[in-house]
Amino acid sequence: MSNTTEKALNLLRYLPRVCISNIRDNPGAHKQARRGRGQHGGDYHGAGNKGAKARQSYTRLGYEMGNNPFYLRFPFEPYYKGHHLKRQYPPVSLLNLQKLIDTNRIDTTKPIDLVAIMNTGLFRLYPDQQHFGFQLTDEGADIFSAKINLEIQWTSEPVIAAIERAGGFVTTAYYDAQSLHAMINTKKFFERGIPIPRRMMPPPDAIEYYSNPANRGYLSDPEKISKERLVLAQKYGYTLPKLDDQILEMLKERKDPRQIFYGLHPGWVVNLTDKVILKPLDEELKEYYAS
């Protein structure tokens, strides 16, 4: 018996049932059908005799032989006005978040921010397409139950109520495009070797949202936020649960308005190979990054 047949028989012993649907002929057994190309392939190269199709002289897409075409018959409507200026927030639902927590993709013992969500690898964000972070939608608000310290870019009232009823905290924070690029791929950002930038202030049309305690904005007064928590609890009919001291410290952790990563200050350079952080000593730079 030849070497190839032996190998083939050995393979057969290992594979499951072989039938017509999972085998194929040896290469060269069937001749490929000629499509009509080249000198001997065909006179008309698969295009038939004469006509616009053979001569590639089609009328343009949408043309209706001279009468007013469909795509020009109707009046203007500013559907897409300002589409390139408005901010976009791709949705993440509470159900998604709960699934991540259930499957242990996200660590609830630490604060959850955009970095944590991006590190799961399950969500994509494109800052160059005017994406400014994620918005939390209320799908799964009924079943949500996890004590988390969440920082998101946009939410609505029922979502905040659902998280606070479960015993967690929500904050809405703004990140500019440069900060987003740093957060989306933190490894790539640290490898660039540039100092962590300061987070920029939100634009004029967003400042109102982020300074409003009802939205749990990061620029609003913490005392007003605690008052709003009570108001929301009364509105949706639940009592604010008591929190353990162990978790309370973690739940209280908040970022500075100019900070991008937890625990890392702007102006620092992270060296991943030497596992070292470089901090500036110049007074000017320190002042700038602290402002």
Partner: peptide
């Protein structure tokens, strides 16, 4: 893109385009 189309029509994500009435 043909700009005339974007001035008169709007695309919904499930594949349909909407327009105003002449």
């Amino acid at each position: 893109s043909v700009k005339a189309v974007l001035k008169r029509f709007y695309r919904l994500q499930w594949g349909i385009w909407i327009r105003t009435k002449a």
